[in-house]
Amino acid sequence: LQSLKISPPPKRLECLDVSDNRLDSLPGCLWPSGRASLLRLHAGGNEIRRLPADIWRCAKLQSLRLERNRIAELPAAPAEAANGLTELLELCLDSNQLTRLPAALFHLTPALVELNLANNQLVELPKLPLRNSGNRLQVLTASFNQLSDADVSFLAENFGSSLRTLLLAFNRLTEISDETMLQFCELRELNISGNQLKTLPSTLSRLERLVTIRAHSNCLQQLPDLSDSPRMRTLDVGCNSTLSGSVRNLMESRLSFLDLSCNQQMGMSMQDLA
């Protein structure tokens, strides 16, 4: 489909899936009549470049999937839609051409649980201070962008008590402080591979729910002591050519999967692996 017209305009439409077509815009009939009832709008895999500002009027929308399009920016919310998408749980925008996000994005989506921003050109996340601590964001996928250390600090301060999965691979991270990492108290999975990190926070072992750490393809020189990590099962630190030191303490941990491949400076012996 290259275009879609719905006549007469739907009044009770709750779910619309137009994924994997050739649409360059969303049907205009959705906004005046469908905004009160639409719960799920899936339009991934099209050729959409712009979204109408009226999309912020869909107050009951719970799932909005717009991955694999050509969207360069999101529209600002009109004044009469200042409350935004108050029931939105899932927002998927990966594989677009986004260079920035609305400053009030997290204010406009207060119930958001899962956000996918991977494979864009974002240099920063919107950092407008949040008004309360009732944030629900649990899964953030923002790999393959150009995010910095400041974005990790913002996430820790505003979503540290809710995030369970944090995927920030292949960005521009250089350092994550011990204090920042300790704020992610609910974290289960962390992927910070493909950055420019020289060290990992020593407080990783104090995150009681952390199961998976992926930090391959960085500039790591040493690993912190992770032997006391209560639930960690997967550690991937392969392709860190400057990584050195002993792995004996890792052998004493609860790990089920350990990747140390392509680390030529690691001093390993059969005794370490025993």
Rank of each mutant, 00 (worst) to 15 (best):
L16I: 04
V211P: 00
L235P: 14
L260F: 02
E186W: 05
S241W: 14
N96P: 13
D17S: 13
R12G: 02
T86E: 14
R231P: 01
R206F: 13
L38K: 12
G45T: 03
N132H: 15
A53G: 12
C219H: 10
Q97L: 15
G245L: 08
P201C: 14
S205K: 14
A43F: 09
K60S: 13
E124N: 06
L130Q: 11
L16G: 02
T212L: 07
R209F: 04
M266E: 00
D20R: 13
T99M: 15
I192E: 06
L166N: 03
E67G: 10
S153Y: 11
R254H: 14
N83F: 09
S37T: 15
C219P: 00
P9W: 02
S202F: 02
F144A: 04
L125T: 04
A111P: 02
L93C: 07
L182A: 12
A43K: 10
E179T: 11
I6C: 01
L101S: 07
M268W: 00
N96C: 13
M232W: 08
V247M: 12
E179V: 05
E80M: 07
D272Y: 05
E179L: 06
D178G: 03
T199L: 14
L112K: 05
L115P: 08
N263D: 07
Q62Y: 10
C219R: 13
N132L: 08
L220T: 10
A81V: 10
R12I: 01
P126M: 06
L168S: 07
E175N: 10
W31F: 15
E175K: 15
